[in-house]
């Protein structure tokens, strides 16, 4: 397992020299699988490579989510968008992360996996990170009239937003 990871790390580092910012591997850092920090300009290339070209074939997108690092040690960014990938052949997982500032957009992965569609909408809904090129960037769990992004660390824990009417069906989505 560890040899596989080291090979993959070397492969990615040589191919995407300028795009891979940092690699954290289990043992040196408290994590279960290697984490690749990738610049957002290169994230699509790296994901595409991991999905199709790389011999490992991380073709299964487990999850897309984000973390709010507000007030953390590193002041260069606020959010980290997290991609959890899984290889059906090798039965192994890796994690790819993108550091983003507030109001920065990340390119969408919908063209690689349709599953990314709702996952990215949820990241937008909960964290307010937009994905450029996403076909339908609207809220998913919260009401479309909701103000604020609940999973941000500065979001208040108490308070109400009440809507007297339900959301109307949107005929535009059926075209």
């Amino acid at each position: 397992m560890r040899e596989d990871w080291l090979m993959l790390i070397a492969e990615l580092k040589s191919r995407f020299t300028s795009m891979v910012e940092e690699v954290r591997i289990p043992g040196e850092y408290s994590t279960d699988v290697p984490i690749f920090y990738v610049k957002k300009e290169g994230i699509l290339d790296v994901l595409q490579y991991l999905k199709t070209v790389s011999g490992s074939g991380y073709e299964f997108l487990s999850d897309i989510t984000a973390t709010d690092e507000m007030g953390g040690e590193e002041k260069t960014h606020r959010f980290e968008v997290v991609y959890q990938l899984f290889s059906h052949q090798r039965k192994s997982r890796i994690r790819v992360k993108v550091r983003v500032k507030e109001n920065e957009e990340v390119p969408t992965a919908v063209h690689l996996w349709n599953a990314a569609n709702w996952a990215e909408r949820e990241v937008w809904d909960m964290f307010g990170i937009r994905f450029s090129g996403h076909p339908n960037m609207r809220r998913i769990l919260m009401d479309s009239r909701w103000k604020g992004h609940p999973l941000r660390k500065d979001y208040p824990l108490r308070g109400y937003q009440i809507f007297p009417t339900p959301e109307e069906p949107d005929p535009k989505l059926l075209e």
């Binding site: 998913i140 769990l141 009401d143 999973l151 069906p169 949107d170 989505l173 059926l174």
Partner: peptide, 25 residues
Amino acid sequence: VAKINGETIEKSYCEFGYTHRAKEK
């Protein structure tokens, strides 16, 4: 929400979140 032609679904979209309880928060 489905657009149906006769009995056939031409296009549809799904919505959820009605029982969202902010578990991650």
